[in-house]
């Protein structure tokens, strides 16, 4: 299967018109994630209140996959508890390695569209950049 099938209308929509691009008022956590090999970078901002992600945003530059993946992720985790967010990140990472079940992938909603990226090792790092960064932020919080 060609990697080009990843570029669905939904992915393009998240890339071109992201709903979470910008900054977060009263952010409690800010972290930059970087893919040195391709120059992608992403700034995540979170407002965490009593263990719940109340609001979140991203900024930065990179390929369509990295940008759309960040936006899809934030769609998914805003309003969730930290534990639930870590659970979803875990599913996403396993999905990328081809190890998640269909039911689990359903939990990821639109981010599940990125499952075929596992066939294209060179692009995996684009898809996981924001997820990896969010995981680091949430784990640091402990």
């Amino acid at each position: 299967m060609a990697i080009s099938s990843i570029y669905s209308n939904i992915l393009n929509e998240h890339n071109l018109r992201p709903s979470h691009r910008g900054s977060t008022e009263g952010a409690t956590q800010v972290l930059e994630g970087v893919n040195p090999s391709c120059g992608d970078d992403i700034f995540l901002e979170l407002r965490l209140e009593e263990g719940v992600i109340k609001d979140a945003s991203f900024n930065g530059s990179g390929c369509a996959i990295s940008q759309a993946s960040a936006d899809m992720m934030l769609d998914l985790i805003v309003g969730e508890t930290k534990e639930q967010a870590l659970h979803l990140i875990d599913i996403f990472m396993r999905m990328i390695r081809g190890e998640a079940s269909e039911d689990e992938i359903d939990e990821l909603d639109e981010a599940g569209l990125l499952k075929d990226i596992s066939h294209m090792p060179a692009r995996v790092k684009c898809a996981v950049l924001s997820w990896r960064t969010l995981k680091e932020m949430l784990e640091k919080e402990d």
Binding site: A2, I3, S5, I6, C38, C63, A64, I65, A122
Partner: peptide, 22 residues
């Protein structure tokens, strides 16, 4: 408006092999 990695991945759909990156 297009990241070079996306150019390369999209062209791969037509079996066109090009390099992207630094």
């Amino acid at each position: 408006g297009v990241h070079p990695h996306d150019v390369s991945s999209i062209l791969d759909g037509d079996k066109i092999c090009i390099r992207a990156g630094h």
